[in-house]
C-alpha cells in the first residue's frame, strides 16, 4: 500500500460509489461557479471605488518601493529569527523545569508557563514598551518587540515539547536505564531526540505564530515589514494595494514554513515506519 496517498479523508469517509462520485462532480462545478462569481464581485467593488486606479499600483513598478519592503522584510526576519531562538530556549527551560521531580521547581515552571500562555502578546509588548523603561532599563526597539513576542510564545512551546516527551514510549527509558545510562544521558540521547521529532509540526506552527506576532513591531516603531507598509500607506494613500502585497508576502513565508513542517513530518514517518 502506498502510504503517501492516504489522507484524512480515507479515515473519515468510505470510498465513493457511482452516485456519490456524481454528487461530488456537481458539487465541485457549483462551488467553482460560486468562487468565480465572488471574485468577480470583489474586483467590481474595488473597481467602482477606484482601488484599481493606476496611482495605487504604479508604486510597485519602482525599485525603491521594493527596496523599502525588502528592508522591512529583513527587519521582520531578524526579529522573527531572534524571537524563535529565545522562544525555543525559554520553552526548553520551562519544560525541563516543569518535568523536574522537585515540586518547587516544577510549580514555579508551571506558573511561568501559565503566565506566558495566558497573557496576550500585546500586553507583554506594552510591558516592555512602557513599564520596563521606568525601571531604568533602556532596551533598543529590536528587543522591545523580540522579547515580548518570544515570552508570549514560550509557554505554548514548553507544553508542546512536554507533550513530545510524554509521547515517547516508556520502554525507551527502561531500555536505556537497563544499559546503565544515568537520567541526564537518557534524556539527552534517547528521550529528547525522539520527543523533538514528534513535535516538529507543532513547533513550526508555533514559529508561524511568532512570525505573525512580530507585526506588533509598529507599537514600538521598529521597522519591520508591517511598519514599513504603514509608512507606504500614509505616503501614498494606497491602503488596499499595499496591504494586499504585504499579505501575500506573509502568506508565502508562512506557507513555506508549513511546507517545511509537512516535509519534516513525512521524513520522520519514512524513517521510523520503513
Amino acid at each position: 500500500m502506498n502510504n503517501k496517498n492516504i489522507t484524512i479523508r480515507d479515515y473519515l469517509y468510505e470510498a465513493p460509489g457511482p452516485k456519490t462520485k456524481r454528487y461530488i462532480t456537481i458539487g465541485t462545478v457549483l462551488s467553482l461557479i460560486c468562487v468565480a462569481w465572488l471574485i468577480y464581485v470583489i474586483i467590481r467593488l474595488f473597481y467602482e471605488n477606484g482601488q484599481l486606479d493606476a496611482k495605487y499600483w504604479s508604486i510597485f513598478t519602482r525599485a525603491t518601493t521594493w527596496r523599502f519592503f525588502g528592508k522591512g522584510l529583513l527587519g521582520t526576519l531578524e526579529v522573527s529569527l531572534a524571537a524563535m531562538l529565545v522562544t525555543f530556549s525559554l520553552g526548553m527551560i520551562m519544560m525541563i523545569g516543569r518535568i523536574n521531580r522537585n515540586k518547587v521547581i516544577s510549580t514555579i515552571a508551571t506558573v511561568f508557563i501559565e503566565l506566558s500562555r495566558g497573557i496576550p502578546t500585546l500586553l507583554f509588548i506594552y510591558f516592555f514598551f512602557l513599564a520596563v523603561p521606568q525601571f531604568g532599563l533602556k532596551l533598543p526597539a529590536f528587543w522591545k518587540i523580540t522579547l515580548p513576542v518570544a515570552i508570549s510564545a514560550a509557554g505554548v512551546t514548553a507544553e508542546t515539547l512536554r507533550s513530545g516527551v510524554n509521547a515517547v514510549p516508556k520502554g525507551q527509558r527502561e531500555a536505556a536505564i537497563s544499559l546503565g545510562m544515568r537520567d541526564h544521558t537518557v534524556f539527552l540521547k534517547i528521550i529528547f531526540p525522539q520527543a523533538f521529532r514528534i513535535v516538529i509540526p507543532g513547533l513550526i506552527s508555533e514559529l508561524v505564530i511568532v512570525l505573525k506576532d512580530t507585526t506588533f513591531a509598529y507599537v514600538v516603531s521598529y521597522a519591520d515589514l508591517m511598519q514599513n507598509a504603514r509608512v507606504m500607506i500614509s505616503n501614498y494613500d494606497a491602503l488596499l494595494s499595499v496591504y494586499l502585497v504585504v499579505a501575500v508576502i506573509y502568506i508565502l513565508i508562512n506557507y513555506g514554513l508549513n511546507k517545511l513542517s509537512v516535509y519534516l513530518a513525512n521524513r520522520r514517518k519514512r524513517l521510523q515506519a520503513g
Binding site: 525507551q172 531500555a175 525522539q194
Partner: peptide
Amino acid sequence: MVFQQFNLFAH
C-alpha cells in the same frame, strides 16, 4: 535486560 516489546531506540 531483554523486553517483551524489544524497546530498541527508535531514532
